[in-house]
Write a protein that binds this DNA or RNA. Structure first.
Length: 228
DNA sequence: GCGACAG
DNA sequence: ATCTTGTCGC
Protein backbone atom coordinates (compact mmCIF):
# COMPACT_ATOMS: atom_id res chain seq x y z
CA UNK A 1 0.00 0.00 0.00
CA UNK A 2 1.22 3.48 -0.86
CA UNK A 3 1.98 6.18 1.67
CA UNK A 4 -0.93 8.29 0.47
CA UNK A 5 -3.33 5.43 1.08
CA UNK A 6 -1.92 4.84 4.55
CA UNK A 7 -2.54 8.48 5.31
CA UNK A 8 -6.17 8.24 4.27
CA UNK A 9 -6.61 5.40 6.75
CA UNK A 10 -4.81 7.26 9.53
CA UNK A 11 -7.08 10.22 8.99
CA UNK A 12 -10.17 8.04 9.16
CA UNK A 13 -8.88 6.43 12.36
CA UNK A 14 -8.13 9.80 13.91
CA UNK A 15 -11.63 11.08 13.14
CA UNK A 16 -13.16 7.93 14.60
CA UNK A 17 -11.07 8.35 17.75
CA UNK A 18 -12.32 11.92 18.11
CA UNK A 19 -15.93 10.74 17.99
CA UNK A 20 -15.13 8.24 20.73
CA UNK A 21 -13.14 10.56 22.98
CA UNK A 22 -15.52 13.50 22.74
CA UNK A 23 -17.87 11.60 24.99
CA UNK A 24 -15.52 12.35 27.89
CA UNK A 25 -15.45 16.11 27.42
CA UNK A 26 -17.01 18.22 30.18
CA UNK A 27 -17.78 21.56 28.59
CA UNK A 28 -20.55 22.85 30.83
CA UNK A 29 -19.30 22.39 34.38
CA UNK A 30 -17.87 24.84 36.90
CA UNK A 31 -14.37 26.01 36.00
CA UNK A 32 -11.70 26.75 38.59
CA UNK A 33 -12.69 29.65 40.85
CA UNK A 34 -9.16 30.21 42.06
CA UNK A 35 -6.05 29.88 39.94
CA UNK A 36 -2.65 29.77 41.59
CA UNK A 37 -0.75 28.49 38.58
CA UNK A 38 -1.70 28.09 34.94
CA UNK A 39 0.01 26.13 32.17
CA UNK A 40 0.45 27.30 28.59
CA UNK A 41 1.37 25.09 25.64
CA UNK A 42 2.67 25.79 22.14
CA UNK A 43 4.52 24.17 19.24
CA UNK A 44 6.99 25.79 16.82
CA UNK A 45 7.78 24.37 13.38
CA UNK A 46 10.93 24.45 11.30
CA UNK A 47 10.46 25.83 7.80
CA UNK A 48 12.49 23.30 5.86
CA UNK A 49 12.24 20.09 7.86
CA UNK A 50 9.82 18.13 9.99
CA UNK A 51 11.53 19.23 13.21
CA UNK A 52 9.16 20.59 15.82
CA UNK A 53 9.64 22.06 19.30
CA UNK A 54 7.04 21.69 22.01
CA UNK A 55 6.94 23.98 25.02
CA UNK A 56 5.03 24.23 28.27
CA UNK A 57 5.21 27.17 30.63
CA UNK A 58 3.88 27.52 34.16
CA UNK A 59 2.76 31.00 35.21
CA UNK A 60 1.87 32.14 38.71
CA UNK A 61 -1.03 34.41 39.62
CA UNK A 62 -1.57 37.29 39.86
CA UNK A 63 1.41 38.66 37.92
CA UNK A 64 1.72 35.65 35.57
CA UNK A 65 5.46 35.45 36.00
CA UNK A 66 7.04 32.28 34.62
CA UNK A 67 7.77 29.85 37.44
CA UNK A 68 8.41 26.71 35.44
CA UNK A 69 8.92 25.47 31.90
CA UNK A 70 10.13 22.66 29.69
CA UNK A 71 10.81 22.18 25.98
CA UNK A 72 11.36 19.18 23.75
CA UNK A 73 12.53 18.87 20.16
CA UNK A 74 11.40 16.07 17.89
CA UNK A 75 9.90 15.29 14.51
CA UNK A 76 6.33 15.78 13.38
CA UNK A 77 4.65 12.41 12.93
CA UNK A 78 1.32 13.65 11.58
CA UNK A 79 0.61 16.30 8.91
CA UNK A 80 -1.48 19.37 9.44
CA UNK A 81 -5.03 18.44 8.57
CA UNK A 82 -7.75 20.96 9.48
CA UNK A 83 -9.79 19.33 12.22
CA UNK A 84 -6.98 16.98 13.27
CA UNK A 85 -4.51 19.44 14.76
CA UNK A 86 -4.24 17.53 18.04
CA UNK A 87 -2.80 14.48 16.28
CA UNK A 88 0.03 16.67 15.09
CA UNK A 89 0.63 18.74 18.22
CA UNK A 90 -0.23 16.47 21.12
CA UNK A 91 2.94 14.33 20.98
CA UNK A 92 5.38 17.26 21.34
CA UNK A 93 3.13 18.91 23.93
CA UNK A 94 2.91 15.79 26.06
CA UNK A 95 6.67 15.29 25.80
CA UNK A 96 7.14 18.75 27.28
CA UNK A 97 4.50 18.03 29.93
CA UNK A 98 6.34 14.88 31.04
CA UNK A 99 9.45 16.99 31.49
CA UNK A 100 7.86 19.69 33.60
CA UNK A 101 5.44 17.69 35.74
CA UNK A 102 8.09 16.13 38.06
CA UNK A 103 9.36 19.63 38.81
CA UNK A 104 6.00 20.89 40.05
CA UNK A 105 4.84 20.70 43.64
CA UNK A 106 1.23 21.01 42.44
CA UNK A 107 -0.33 20.53 39.03
CA UNK A 108 -1.62 23.75 37.41
CA UNK A 109 -5.22 24.78 38.11
CA UNK A 110 -5.85 25.65 34.49
CA UNK A 111 -4.39 24.94 31.05
CA UNK A 112 -4.46 27.09 27.90
CA UNK A 113 -3.37 26.17 24.42
CA UNK A 114 -3.44 27.63 20.91
CA UNK A 115 -6.36 26.53 18.77
CA UNK A 116 -9.95 25.61 19.55
CA UNK A 117 -11.74 23.38 22.02
CA UNK A 118 -15.33 22.38 21.27
CA UNK A 119 -15.56 25.02 18.52
CA UNK A 120 -14.57 22.26 16.14
CA UNK A 121 -16.25 20.24 13.35
CA UNK A 122 -16.63 17.26 15.71
CA UNK A 123 -16.57 19.30 18.93
CA UNK A 124 -13.17 17.89 19.79
CA UNK A 125 -10.38 20.33 19.08
CA UNK A 126 -6.85 20.36 20.48
CA UNK A 127 -7.92 21.89 23.81
CA UNK A 128 -10.39 19.04 24.37
CA UNK A 129 -7.87 16.34 23.51
CA UNK A 130 -5.26 17.94 25.76
CA UNK A 131 -7.79 18.43 28.55
CA UNK A 132 -9.04 14.86 28.75
CA UNK A 133 -5.49 13.54 28.39
CA UNK A 134 -4.22 15.62 31.31
CA UNK A 135 -7.57 15.55 33.13
CA UNK A 136 -7.31 19.28 33.81
CA UNK A 137 -9.51 22.31 33.08
CA UNK A 138 -8.54 23.48 29.60
CA UNK A 139 -9.33 26.46 27.36
CA UNK A 140 -8.50 26.80 23.67
CA UNK A 141 -7.62 30.30 22.48
CA UNK A 142 -7.34 30.77 18.72
CA UNK A 143 -6.27 33.80 16.68
CA UNK A 144 -8.69 33.03 13.85
CA UNK A 145 -12.17 31.48 13.67
CA UNK A 146 -12.58 27.91 12.52
CA UNK A 147 -16.19 26.76 12.60
CA UNK A 148 -19.57 28.32 13.30
CA UNK A 149 -20.80 31.87 12.97
CA UNK A 150 -20.40 34.97 15.11
CA UNK A 151 -20.90 38.69 14.99
CA UNK A 152 -18.24 41.20 15.92
CA UNK A 153 -18.20 42.15 19.62
CA UNK A 154 -18.07 45.79 20.76
CA UNK A 155 -14.73 47.57 20.69
CA UNK A 156 -14.18 47.56 24.45
CA UNK A 157 -12.09 45.03 26.35
CA UNK A 158 -14.30 42.33 27.81
CA UNK A 159 -17.04 42.59 25.21
CA UNK A 160 -17.89 39.33 23.53
CA UNK A 161 -20.28 37.50 21.23
CA UNK A 162 -21.12 33.84 20.98
CA UNK A 163 -19.79 31.49 18.33
CA UNK A 164 -22.76 29.42 17.18
CA UNK A 165 -22.50 25.98 15.59
CA UNK A 166 -25.70 24.22 14.56
CA UNK A 167 -27.57 26.75 16.66
CA UNK A 168 -25.59 26.02 19.81
CA UNK A 169 -23.04 28.27 21.56
CA UNK A 170 -19.65 26.58 21.31
CA UNK A 171 -17.33 29.47 22.05
CA UNK A 172 -16.87 33.23 22.12
CA UNK A 173 -15.29 36.00 20.12
CA UNK A 174 -13.72 38.00 22.95
CA UNK A 175 -12.17 41.47 22.85
CA UNK A 176 -9.16 41.29 25.16
CA UNK A 177 -8.01 44.89 24.54
CA UNK A 178 -9.83 48.06 23.50
CA UNK A 179 -9.96 48.40 19.73
CA UNK A 180 -7.86 45.33 18.97
CA UNK A 181 -9.22 42.41 17.01
CA UNK A 182 -10.85 39.69 19.04
CA UNK A 183 -9.62 36.22 19.99
CA UNK A 184 -11.72 33.10 19.58
CA UNK A 185 -11.97 30.91 22.60
CA UNK A 186 -13.79 27.74 23.50
CA UNK A 187 -13.85 25.32 26.37
CA UNK A 188 -11.58 22.33 26.09
CA UNK A 189 -12.52 20.40 29.23
CA UNK A 190 -13.84 20.82 32.79
CA UNK A 191 -15.04 24.40 32.34
CA UNK A 192 -17.78 26.51 30.80
CA UNK A 193 -17.88 29.53 28.53
CA UNK A 194 -18.34 32.21 31.23
CA UNK A 195 -15.46 30.86 33.29
CA UNK A 196 -13.27 30.52 30.20
CA UNK A 197 -13.89 34.15 29.21
CA UNK A 198 -13.17 35.30 32.74
CA UNK A 199 -9.81 33.54 32.94
CA UNK A 200 -8.73 34.51 29.44
CA UNK A 201 -9.37 38.15 30.32
CA UNK A 202 -7.38 37.72 33.53
CA UNK A 203 -4.55 36.32 31.46
CA UNK A 204 -4.64 39.28 29.05
CA UNK A 205 -3.80 42.25 31.32
CA UNK A 206 -1.75 43.99 28.65
CA UNK A 207 -1.76 42.28 25.27
CA UNK A 208 -4.27 40.75 22.89
CA UNK A 209 -3.07 37.21 23.51
CA UNK A 210 -2.92 35.48 26.90
CA UNK A 211 0.40 35.60 28.74
CA UNK A 212 0.45 31.80 28.56
CA UNK A 213 0.34 31.89 24.76
CA UNK A 214 3.00 34.58 24.55
CA UNK A 215 5.39 32.83 26.91
CA UNK A 216 4.92 29.38 25.36
CA UNK A 217 5.34 30.80 21.87
CA UNK A 218 8.61 32.52 22.78
CA UNK A 219 9.94 29.42 24.46
CA UNK A 220 9.06 26.97 21.67
CA UNK A 221 10.68 29.24 19.09
CA UNK A 222 13.79 29.61 21.19
CA UNK A 223 14.05 25.84 21.60
CA UNK A 224 13.74 25.38 17.85
CA UNK A 225 16.36 28.04 17.13
CA UNK A 226 18.77 26.56 19.68
CA UNK A 227 18.45 23.18 18.03
CA UNK A 228 19.28 24.27 14.47
C1' DG B 1 -19.52 20.69 -7.70
C1' DC B 2 -16.61 24.56 -5.43
C1' DG B 3 -14.29 26.80 -1.88
C1' DA B 4 -12.78 27.13 2.87
C1' DC B 5 -10.06 25.14 6.37
C1' DA B 6 -7.21 26.00 14.19
C1' DG B 7 -1.64 25.51 13.83
C1' DA C 1 2.79 27.28 11.42
C1' DT C 2 6.40 30.17 8.53
C1' DC C 3 8.42 33.64 5.07
C1' DT C 4 9.12 39.30 5.55
C1' DT C 5 9.60 46.05 5.23
C1' DG C 6 7.85 49.53 6.03
C1' DT C 7 4.56 52.03 8.36
C1' DC C 8 0.78 54.04 11.24
C1' DG C 9 -0.14 55.50 15.92
C1' DC C 10 0.48 56.27 20.96
Amino acid sequence: MHAAEEMVLQIAEAEALQLQLRGHVQADVAGPDQVTTVAGFDVAYDTESDVVAGAVVILAAPTWEVVGSATTVGRAAFPYVPGLLSFRELPPLLDAWDEVLPKLSTPPDLVLCDGHGIAHPRRFGLACHLGITLNLPTIGVAKTPFVGTHTSPGQRRGERTEILLDGEPVGAALRTRDGVREVYLSVGHRSNLDSACRWVLELCPKYRLPETTRAADRLSRAALAAHR
